[in-house]
């Protein structure tokens, strides 16, 4: 079970308190998931209600970055282009 910290309200919680919104792409973007580090949208559902960015490895579930929209990190090591 993922442990996620919301970058907006700083509250850490189980994945059940958040909602994944799919790839961190613009609407209409046709890209699909692949194995490796993917950037995603997540919603702090039980907390502040903010959508934020998160980089997660879709295989081993390691979270390598988390950010407020607009403060996207540069390319992460191992990230899927």
């Amino acid at each position: 079970m993922l442990l996620i910290t919301c970058p907006v309200c700083s509250i850490a919680g189980d994945e059940t308190e958040f909602t994944c919104g799919g790839l961190y792409t613009a609407p209409g973007d046709q890209r699909v998931y692949a194995r490796g580090i993917s950037r995603e949208w997540w919603l702090c559902e039980s907390g502040c209600g903010s959508w934020f960015g998160l980089a997660r490895h879709t295989g081993n579930q390691r979270i390598s970055a988390i950010w407020v929209p607009g403060e996207e990190p540069d390319a992460l090591p191992g990230e899927i282009a």
């Binding site: 909602t19 919104g21 613009a26 609407p27 949208w41 919603l43 559902e45 209600g49 903010s50 959508w51 929209p69 607009g70």
Partner: peptide, 13 residues
């Protein structure tokens, strides 16, 4: 609400 927020916060900030 979630659907609206999703568009608002991710596409039309």
């Amino acid at each position: 609400t979630a659907w609206f927020e999703r568009w608002l916060q991710t596409a039309w900030r």
